[in-house]
Computed example of a mutant assay.
Amino acid sequence: MSDPLPAATGELRDGDLVLRPTRSTGGFDGFAVLVDDERVGSVALREESAGVRSARWNLGTGPDAMTWAVRTLRLVFDHTFGELGATRVEARVPVDRTADIRAASIAGMRREGVLRGGSDADRVLVARLADDPPLDSRDAFIAILNAGLPTKRVISQGLVRDPAGRVLMCELTYKTEWDLPGGVIEVGESPAVGLVRELSEELGVTVEVRGLLTVTWLPAWRGWDDACMFLFDLGVAEPEIVDTFDLQANEIAAVHWCTPDDLSARATAASQEMLRHVREGTVTAYRDAPLAP
């Protein structure tokens, strides 16, 4: 830990908004936040390590609190990066303080994750770096949104049938139900390319993606978050093709050609329902899976 941050000696000003130094406590150098000489809240900085300051603030919950918080944080950035020579300003905001998390984002801080557990409630870690793009730039806008917007898990699965109409299913090592071949798509990977990769890794086979059959939204289930599942047509194969597979032993215990009765006994309810619609020709381009019991 480096030496404590010296007490601020001057006011920071942005028009009618003023940050006035107050007494330093607990390692934090504080500022009273004033608008037209009326105190509306406070903000404080602490040196965590060389070049890194943490910030905390309280601007209340009034109708102008968001605006004041954003302007206050931007003054803090100018001060810490310009006058103090810091390279990073970060904050740990309780997850239920959504207005403060949003203010931090608008001010130019990027969401970096959630700090869990300990004596405090879970906290969102946000930060801004001295060399981040200027706040009014397109690059900054995109980066902040990318850091804070929700993401959706994508799963790709392939439908392979034999001449008798049986469906190829995988017996998995990590769950009871059998499933269609495929898996979770990686960041930046297309669903079709990801499916080809998954089957190469798990079955040792190269497949041709013939077309999209349906996209199914899967609600949260057994501790898994919700996801979108892309079902691709992989065509018809002779039953003996399974003899050429090189199974990834830590995930795939075996593969099976399944009749509708087999699916009823082994597949999840969501897979049974989807495959029934495919079999009957009633599957739609997009669909929501029924909620699991």
Rank of each mutant, 00 (worst) to 15 (best):
V18F: 11
Q272H: 05
G41M: 07
R111L: 14
T98D: 11
A220M: 01
P239N: 02
E202V: 04
R222S: 05
V184S: 03
G117C: 04
L168Y: 01
P6T: 13
P163V: 03
T72L: 02
R197N: 03
W221L: 10
P181H: 11
L149S: 12
M274T: 05
E201M: 08
N58I: 02
I144S: 01
E47F: 06
P191Q: 10
A147L: 14
R123D: 00
A270Q: 07
D14W: 13
T268L: 12
V114W: 09
R20Y: 10
D233Y: 02
A164M: 05
P293A: 14
P163Y: 03
D64V: 04
R166Q: 01
D132Q: 09
V76W: 07
A104C: 14
D100R: 14
D162I: 00
M1R: 13
V40T: 10
I185K: 00
G27W: 06
G60N: 12
L213N: 05
E273P: 00
A265K: 11
G113L: 11
P181Q: 09
T22K: 09
S119R: 11
F230Q: 01
L45G: 12
A121I: 01
P150C: 09
V124K: 15
G182Y: 12
P21I: 04
G85D: 14
E177M: 07
N146S: 12
C258A: 15
E83N: 11
L17P: 15
I155Q: 03
S54T: 12
G15T: 15
L275C: 02
G194E: 06
S264M: 15
T284H: 10
V124D: 13
L19M: 07
R46K: 10
A99W: 06
T176G: 13
L73P: 13
T87D: 12
T9E: 07
P63W: 08
R222Q: 12
W257H: 00
M229W: 08
T206I: 03
R111F: 07
L203A: 07
D246H: 09
R153T: 06
A220V: 09
S200L: 03
I142S: 06
T282S: 05
W68F: 15
D14P: 13
A289W: 02
R56E: 01
Q248H: 14
I142C: 03
G211V: 11
E202A: 06
I252A: 14
V40E: 07
V43T: 04
S200V: 04
F28L: 05
A147C: 14
R276F: 06
L199M: 04
S137A: 04
F31P: 02
G188D: 08
D120S: 01
T151Q: 08
G27M: 07
P150A: 07
L59R: 05
S105R: 14
D288G: 15
A86Y: 08
P293Q: 10
G27Y: 02
L203Y: 07
S271R: 02
T214H: 12
A269I: 08
L135T: 04
L145C: 08
D3F: 08
V40K: 10
L212V: 05
E189P: 13
D37P: 12
P94L: 01
V283R: 09
T173A: 15
E177G: 03
